[in-house]
């Protein structure tokens, strides 16, 4: 390893929980290695979009990346599993699965794709928000045009929930809802708040359909250049950053929820998640389409919320 600092990329802006976690990782790693390993953190997509930084990490151009699992889904089928809709019963269930055996299996699957999975971060639970219609049960989704990211899984999910999926660039969503091109979108509380989407779509229904984790990984090329001691230090610093990340995330969710509540957003609590969940069998079997993936799904479903 030369004298250059390791490059760490994140798509979120400074002060976002994942970026704060990376900054913590950097200082922890410097502490563990007595300053031998330095990390420069580049937030706000400074080094490219998530897809770009993922590809750059595979090529060895970026050493560390924090990305969400969507761009990995097309590469590493295992990462699709925790992205499946209505798979986790709660945040606690998701955390215990990712800390446990299923999580380790998914991180290990990254290696054949040029990445070393270091840790799971998270982005809470995503729910549907609309311009005016509450979503309590599948019937409420009929005819609703919901913006999704460009992802086959999200398209299938919204269709299975009973709505019409409209893939659209994130930056166009606000205007799209004002003009009625779409009726709503879906995201977690902090993004819903920071994007100001709540100003134009003030009905937030707690469908909590997806709790896909975020992934923190190292380029295998960069990893291979590290000494065994330094590798151990990287793993240890990454593990230490997870509880830090979760604590900041939980605070952020509470804050965002306060802001949007104060702004008069109607939060729909009594969502029939079971009714939606029942409609997901086809989605699960389409995407978890091998026996191994099916077993991973079952393992996660059979976990309790505190097994780890």
């Amino acid at each position: 390893q030369g004298s250059r600092a390791l490059l760490a990329a994140d798509s979120q802006p400074e002060n976002y929980p994942t970026v704060a976690a990376l900054r913590f990782f950097a200082s922890e790693l410097a502490r563990l290695t007595g300053g031998r390993l330095k990390v420069d953190v580049y937030p706000s997509e400074q080094l490219g979009s998530q897809n770009d930084t993922l590809e750059l990490a595979q090529l060895g151009g970026i050493d560390l990346v924090r990305i969400n699992s969507a761009p990995l889904n097309v590469l590493v089928p295992e990462t699709l599993v925790p992205s499946l809709p209505f798979l986790f019963r709660s945040i606690a269930h998701m955390r215990s699965a990712m800390d446990g055996e299923p999580g380790r299996a998914i991180l290990a699957a990254l290696e054949t794709h040029g990445l070393i999975g270091l840790a799971f971060y998270e982005s809470g639970a995503r729910s549907i928000y609309t311009v005016d219609r509450p979503v309590r049960e599948p019937q409420d989704m009929a005819g609703l045009k919901i913006r999704v990211q460009t992802s086959d899984l999200f398209v299938s999910m919204i269709e299975a929930m009973g709505g019409n999926a409209t893939p659209m660039a994130y930056g166009e969503v606000y205007q799209g809802m004002v003009q009625g091109v779409i009726d709503g979108a879906e995201n977690n509380f902090p993004s819903y708040e920071s994007s100001r989407h709540f100003e134009v779509a003030p009905v937030y229904s707690l469908t909590r359909h997806v709790m896909a984790p975020e992934i923190f990984a190292m380029s295998k090329r960069s990893w291979d250049k590290l000494s065994p001691d330094n590798r151990e230090a990287v793993l240890q610093a990454a593990r230490a950053s997870v509880p830090v990340m979760r604590e900041i995330w939980d605070e952020r969710v509470i804050e965002s929820r306060q802001i949007i509540t104060a702004a008069g957003v109607q939060i729909i609590e009594d969502v029939d998640r079971a009714a939606f969940s029942e409609r997901m069998q086809a989605v699960w079997s389409t995407y978890a389409d091998t026996p191994a993936l099916g077993r991973l799904v079952d393992d996660i479903r059979n976990m309790g919320e505190t097994d780890a």
Partner: peptide, 13 residues
């Protein structure tokens, strides 16, 4: 050519 090799299996949606 290296880039082609690295992305040969990445599907275009």
């Amino acid at each position: 050519a290296q880039l082609v090799g690295a992305t040969w299996n990445n599907a275009v949606p």
